[in-house]
Design a protein around this nucleic acid. Sequence first.
DNA 1: TATGAATGAGAATTCATTCAT
DNA 2: CATGAATGAATTCTCATTCAT
Lengths: 203, 203, 203, 203
Amino acid sequence: MKSRNGDKYHRIIHAATKVFAKKGFFHAKVSDIAKEAQVADGTIYLYFDNKDDILISLFEEQMRAVLENMINEVSREKDAVKKIERFALTHLRLIELNKNMAEIIQVELRQSSKFMKEYKNEKFLQYLNLISDVIREGQEQGVFRKSVIPEIAKRAFFGALDEMSRFWVLSSHKKYDIETAAKQISEYFLYGLIRDPAHPTAE
Amino acid sequence: MKSRNGDKYHRIIHAATKVFAKKGFFHAKVSDIAKEAQVADGTIYLYFDNKDDILISLFEEQMRAVLENMINEVSREKDAVKKIERFALTHLRLIELNKNMAEIIQVELRQSSKFMKEYKNEKFLQYLNLISDVIREGQEQGVFRKSVIPEIAKRAFFGALDEMSRFWVLSSHKKYDIETAAKQISEYFLYGLIRDPAHPTAE
Amino acid sequence: MKSRNGDKYHRIIHAATKVFAKKGFFHAKVSDIAKEAQVADGTIYLYFDNKDDILISLFEEQMRAVLENMINEVSREKDAVKKIERFALTHLRLIELNKNMAEIIQVELRQSSKFMKEYKNEKFLQYLNLISDVIREGQEQGVFRKSVIPEIAKRAFFGALDEMSRFWVLSSHKKYDIETAAKQISEYFLYGLIRDPAHPTAE
Amino acid sequence: MKSRNGDKYHRIIHAATKVFAKKGFFHAKVSDIAKEAQVADGTIYLYFDNKDDILISLFEEQMRAVLENMINEVSREKDAVKKIERFALTHLRLIELNKNMAEIIQVELRQSSKFMKEYKNEKFLQYLNLISDVIREGQEQGVFRKSVIPEIAKRAFFGALDEMSRFWVLSSHKKYDIETAAKQISEYFLYGLIRDPAHPTAE
DNA sequence: TATGAATGAGAATTCATTCAT
DNA sequence: CATGAATGAATTCTCATTCAT
């Protein structure tokens, strides 16, 4: 990414978000983005090195905001259990709020070695680590089982939310509202599926 | 897809799996696949309609086998709890067994509206429904909480496994073995994270 | 350069010679060459790596023939003096015969570091060395002055011929015929400009 | 060319000389020249019509000075023989003095019909004619052979010097110094290569 | 069936030039 | 006069697909 003063930078980012979400990264033409942003094709290259750079910048830009917001939200709760619930709700609300962005992250950033292998996704890892931090916190507080491996649990929890939101993003009709989905998913993780207060879990 | 007798069809599918996993669908050239399969470029088009068709066929072919196998595995258990555990273990073992395939499913099929929106992924839905079936079964047996919404839970559970396997596929070193990961993930779903037998879950 | 079987390779070389001579390398479009050669644009790239490669291949191809021919011609003469005359005549005749090629060599290959600095022009150096070899030969036979430095003289002689042919190639009307020009130039080098009653030049 | 008062004009010419020599005309960007001259891109267009005009102006500017200087130098000698020697020496010294300029003339002005065909190179022709004038003078004085055709000889002599300087400009190490080269080349033209005891060349 | 040379539509990127400030 | 952000025309090269053999 080259320069970012002026509103052109954000106009292009915004246009790209729209176009990538609609056509996918590979089928999106740089000229589509230019048209959407109402700038000349060449102008794109004053703000970005190349097409890849647009996607990466767009992602970084968004993750910065998302991460900051999530840190904020989670820190408002003291209780580890509440934090988990807050995470789920915030995550899904965000998806709801910014479908295009969500679709791109869901779909494009998963894709092609280019982005998942070569591109070191720092911010995403930090996002995931918010979860494992909470879990560890809960374990220290004696609320969560010690046998839980935070590094696995963070992925499981994120994956559950993520798959749910993929379903949302990609299907047009939503059977369940966000609150329901968020509540369900955090409940699964917190209390499990089993209806037995005296369940046989060994610690 | 046109014809599939002869071993050429499978040779091409196999070659494509390798090439797609390595380069990604978009960066993979039809001629790469042809070379890998040791057939002429044109020969590909005797067995497949176009490049997209190779990916779809490859996916269908694989999902058929995977689904069949999973049905088998799950049906070997009577207990809903055991079935969930079996699902997790089988799913992750499969990933382990066929990394290339897993990577393609993880990465390429998520990609581009082309495949997730327009391509009706029947087999995948059936695969997901194996989970909701088990959950409903468990609810009827009185083992699982009635408040669980199977349609949400199936996605949450699958998402958890899927994210775990993405991690596996895309990172080179594995900290945890399959059995551990499968056990952890099914435990989260079955018993939750909370360490309190007398937990306040309202049904 | 990739492959050269079939006549397409030479058809493209020939077309490129025409187009480069007319428009110059930089102003020539690959599609111009394709049209001239009556092949598709993409076909060019089955035979050449890129536009530069066309120019280089064209040059190598030609120099090979030219060098071979000159070696032949020069070796037909025993006398160093005659050899010099033969060189001049052969060189200018060649230019006359293949104007387009000559113009490209004159103009394009002189150009841009790309070709004069990075491209090691082996064949051209061998061509020049034919001259210094003859001069050394003449010196050993006692015909040429020992004070002549063959490495300078070869360039001077070639430069003289080259400038003459540049004039020919680039101007449309020729005042002097080849034989005259060749004779003049070799005379300058052999006998000098000075009118010396004692030397065998007929006035 | 538009305006030329102020030092900007010459700053740009100077910068262009540097940039063209380094990258070649086609690979040189107008913005490179602007940066080198420490002016804005747009400023270039206050002094020059377009990129071509920079090259042409640069050439004219230089040729004016070179021609003037050469007229001066040559006129200092009375003897036609001395004049030829003086021309060679002055020419090569100039090249040495201004390598960048020389490289551009050598390389860029030879290039592309654009400049050698369409651009009427008045000054260059005048430069060449200095040589033929001297030759005619020598012939009238009875020093040079009458059979020499001045129009051919001028090109031959210039070509010899030019090829020598090309070699200098494009190769990094110089085996021979200017004085040697100039002396050699004028000797070839004045006395020829042939060792004739009857002519006044000391061996 | 199988081949692979040929096709040509398509897209990213560059950069000379303009013009509002 | 000077600026430099913006423009958009222009061009190379790629690669899925075809089809004559």
